[in-house]
């Protein structure tokens, strides 16, 4: 005799988006109205940066070298293999740097946020915070939000540098491109503006990663499976939304 409406896929997704919107708004309001202590923000930023730096560097190295390889062979089709520097510089600084940094922070720091907060939710520690009259948004989410806003743009600069460096190594030592030509191409086609835009992308990714991961953790289902589910959903939703956002940002910045 139950007459409750079964939620369809569409209404389910819409409800999730709406709840996420409210969550993000509340987090932003608490961050602005009662900023967390500088010490805890810097500590979190250090955590996020150190957690993700080594893997960002490793992945950036592989991506940069592969981009150089692909660019070299693609441009050789019409005799422009010496232009590989342009390709490497544009692809790495404008797109791959922010994406490598963002996806690895999502995979390491984002999942850590989701797992920590979900564990706290599952074990009743978030309720305990509220009972102790400590606002969980202010205590758990605001520091992480500001910290990722500091750490991710810096990681983007690291990723930019290492992708281009790896591209240089492969182009010059494996493929025999002239070192001077490569560097000149990089210097001509990439300016501070591109690096700066990349950092802005990093900042937007940081907001999305932190808010989505914390959201998935905050509304985690009970039990140890709930923690796993929250972590998994965090990575996947962050990846998809960051890549869509990346297209829109690229369209605005370079389109």
């Amino acid at each position: 005799m139950s007459n409750t409406v079964k939620p369809s896929l569409l209404t389910g997704v819409l409800a999730q988006v709406g709840r996420w919107g409210i969550f993000s708004f509340t987090a932003a309001r608490w961050t602005c109205s009662a900023p967390p202590a500088l010490g805890s923000v810097l500590w979190e930023a250090y955590q996020i940066g150190v957690q993700s730096l080594s893997i960002v560097c490793v992945i950036a190295f592989f991506i940069g070298s592969t981009i150089a390889l692909q660019g070299y062979y693609a441009f050789r089709e019409f005799g422009g293999q010496n232009l590989v520097g342009i390709f490497v510089a544009l692809a790495c600084v404008r797109e791959m740097g922010p994406i490598v940094a963002g996806s690895m922070v999502a995979a390491k720091a984002g999942t850590a946020m989701a797992a920590t907060i979900a564990t706290m939710r599952v074990k009743g520690q978030i309720d305990a915070l509220e009972v102790m009259a400590v606002n969980p948004y202010r205590y758990l989410i605001s520091p992480r939000l500001l910290a990722s806003l500091i750490a991710l743009p810096l990681l983007v600069v690291f990723a930019d540098f290492i992708t281009v460096f790896a591209g240089y190594l492969v182009a010059v030592y494996q493929l025999g491109v002239n070192s001077g030509t490569f560097l000149e191409n990089v210097a001509t086609y990439i300016g501070m503006r591109d690096v700066f835009f990349g950092m802005i992308k990093g900042g937007v990714f940081a907001l999305l990663i932190c808010l989505l991961s914390c959201y998935q953790g905050y509304y985690s289902q009970p039990g140890p499976e709930g923690v796993g589910r929250a972590t998994n959903r965090a990575v996947v939703s962050v990846c998809i939304i960051c890549i869509i956002m990346n297209y829109l940002l690229s369209e605005m910045m370079y389109g």
């Binding site: 490793v58 070298s65 390491k108 999942t111 797992a115 972590t231 998994n232």
Partner: peptide, 23 residues
């Protein structure tokens, strides 16, 4: 907690490994 860590390790390390092989 070990299960959660294993899931995270699996993702990060398989990505490192196959991107390295990709080169």
């Amino acid at each position: 907690e070990g299960v959660g860590k294993a899931a995270n390790d699996a993702v990060v390390r398989s990505i490192i490994t196959f991107l390295g092989m990709n080169y």
